[in-house]
């Protein structure tokens, strides 16, 4: 590539990036602005102040919410990875009658929007007495067709001979799953884990339905609370909250990305 071409490419990339990032950067800037500045249409804060952050923590129990979100997202991630990988293992390695039919039925649940099953799910959780608890927030999300589908595709790339060699050696199914399938599929597992965590982190409707106790509510609801109930016009405070919510996500992405690259370059298969 010549210098001119390079310059052009990078300029284009910079502009595209600026457009993509504008909402986040602007939210970040607003969080440092004082009272009426947003309404005046300022793009850059006149003076950087941390007052909004202090405010945000004082007005709503943001730390509790953050902690709750972390717990809930982590549990959902763990649950989904465990259940999906076990289900995918059965679909790939254990032959049984009607395996494919069952798999397609399983996959077809992806076509049912989650909202459609919300009411029965809510009733179930209510009857079990799981309202206002981590169990109610997490358990309904443990079994997901998407994760099973993703991991099944990954497991299918594992040579059948590895399974057969283990059978000849007398390795049990579970041990094969644990000591061969899981390590070999590390990359896919990390990807799925991150996806689950982020989806769970961004959940809004379900936590709103099954919780009304501040002690177990998640951070997305906290944000909404900030915006609508208590401090409706103080955008600076809301944005400070938003930034606080984004941070763990970004952190996770960075960490996960490093693991992901590691997994890719190490190359489990030739």
């Amino acid at each position: 590539m010549s210098w001119g071409q390079k310059l052009f490419t990078y300029a284009l990339l910079l502009i595209a990036a600026a457009i993509m990032f504008f909402p986040i950067i602007y939210a970040f800037l607003i969080s440092f602005m004082q009272g009426g500045e947003v309404l005046q249409g300022n793009l850059w804060p006149e003076e950087f102040t941390l007052a909004n952050y202090i405010n945000a923590f004082e007005k709503v129990p943001l730390l509790t919410y953050l902690f709750n979100s972390l717990i809930v997202s982590f549990l959902i991630m763990l649950g989904q990875v465990i259940f999906s990988s076990l289900a995918a293992f059965a679909f790939v390695f254990i032959p049984f009658k009607g395996r494919n039919v069952l798999f397609f039925i399983f996959i077809s649940t992806m076509m049912i929007p989650w909202e459609a099953t919300m009411v029965p799910n809510f009733q179930t959780v209510q009857m079990l007495g799981w309202l206002n608890s981590y169990t109610g927030l997490t358990v309904p999300f443990f079994a997901m067709a998407f994760g099973t589908f993703l991991l099944r595709q990954q497991f299918k790339t594992i040579p059948k001979e590895l399974y057969e060699a283990s059978q000849v050696a007398g390795i049990s199914n579970f041990r094969f799953f644990r000591s061969v399938v899981m390590p070999v599929s590390k990359t896919s597992l990390v990807t799925l884990g991150m996806y689950c965590f982020l989806t769970a982190w961004n959940m809004y409707l379900w936590p709103l339905l099954v919780t009304n106790d501040e002690q177990v509510r998640t951070v997305q609801i906290g944000l909404k609370q900030m915006q609508s109930q208590e401090i409706s016009t103080e955008w600076g405070v809301v944005m400070a909250g938003v930034v606080m919510v984004i941070l763990p996500t970004l952190l996770l992405l960075f960490l996960g990305q490093k693991r992901l690259q590691e997994g890719l370059t190490k190359g489990a298969l030739k």
Binding site: P159, E161, L162, E164, A165, S166, Q167, V168, A169, G170, I171, V180, P183, V184, A268, L269, K270
Partner: peptide, 29 residues
Amino acid sequence: RPNERDLSMVFQNYALFPHLTVEQNIMFG
């Protein structure tokens, strides 16, 4: 079952475990 037949098997594509070292592969099982 295969492991009750007291035999060993070598596969066409070797079926080595990619995440284990040669030593671990040899001692596997």
